[in-house]
Design a protein around this nucleic acid. Structure first.
Lengths: 191, 191
DNA sequence: GTCTATACAAAGATAGAC
DNA sequence: GTCTATCTTTGTATAGAC
């Protein structure tokens, strides 16, 4: 049992979401959880290890939340989409955080390779899942759009990742909401 | 005459676009232009100064390129939009760079305040300009979309900023292209 | 305007006691 | 598991010669 390990991951997650991977140090972590820098190395040998573990836990937690929603007998596609977006909307409300992977995307070239790989996988998996959702939802009649579900899923994902980033920077409280409205319309705009 | 000053700004720009603000040092700059670290301080007292100057120059260069396209007698709105997007598409082609301000958006909380301010202004200005373009283009009959031009401009801007980030991370060469296709359709999708 | 030399703090990491 | 102590390297910045 290691509550400290989880506490470290919690703090690392928050630090990356607010400051990026290269914007914090072991000192920052130590201060926030009230231990010494050296103690962190017991749980994570290197900063890259802590970062990679944080991204992995984040990605898995979100994937778990999505779960097998699409496998249910008669899915409510709009509800599934709402549930998917909700954790990301929480970032926008925070005023200081964005999606962990979106934050890392900005400094991609300066990330340790294992972190790069996990971030890239996150993007691919989420776009693929959205494409599945959109395709199934259109088959079901819940969504009505022309064109390739894959193309729409890419646009949807990129738009809300971008919206989180822009909303935090500008402070415009309706940035994400406005983008989501457009994207919702795109899902409703029959051929 | 200070060719060195411009050389420094060129390098800082490239370093931010590939690695983010906290992902490079005065050493990196010095190595690339073949001078000593200390010499950089003659041109920019602090790293924050160099960063702020780099963002300012970048933002002004792009604004200049946009110019007063909208003020011309009978503007070709599609051509103006293509010209606007082109420099950003070049980032996608590079495989390693993204928009300088998009890169900085990921580590926003770890940026010096003057840089934060300039990045936020960049986002606001570009969304406002796009909104103007979309509104005028619809009045002209070049574009056909329902809804608020401001809402569409936010979605457009966020989607392509996000697409640059995702394309670099995943290596998917059609990420930006697919997003642009969706967005183009949105501008053509009458009520 | 660029150099050498140096200061000073911070970062990531290790050794070994408790 | 956490501590103190320490090491090494790097990052940013300054002083002063050329």
């Amino acid at each position: 049992m290691s509550g400290t390990r989880d506490a470290i991951l919690d703090v690392v997650e928050e630090l990356i979401e607010t400051r990026g991977y290269n914007g914090f140090s072991y000192s920052d972590i130590a201060e926030r959880i009230g231990i010494r820098k050296a103690s962190i190395h017991y749980h994570f040998a290197t900063k890259a290890d802590a970062g990679a573990a944080s991204v992995a836990r984040y990605a898995e937690r979100i994937e778990e939340a999505i779960g097998d929603a699409l496998a249910s007998p008669s899915p409510d596609y709009w509800a599934i989409l709402d549930a998917y977006v909700q954790p990301f909307a929480a970032f926008a409300d925070s005023g200081s955080r964005i999606c962990l992977c979106g934050a890392l995307g900005g400094e991609f070239g300066a990330l340790p390779e294992p972190i790069q790989a996990r971030v890239a996988a996150f993007f691919r998996e989420h776009e693929a899942w959205l494409a599945q959702l959109f395709a199934a939802g259109r088959d079901d009649g819940a969504f009505a759009f022309a064109g390739d579900p894959i193309v729409l899923s890419k646009t949807y994902f990129c738009a809300f990742q971008g919206a989180l980033m822009v909303q935090r920077a500008t402070g415009d409280p309706s940035q994400l909401r406005d983008c989501m409205r457009s994207l919702t319309e795109a899902l409703n705009s029959a051929a």
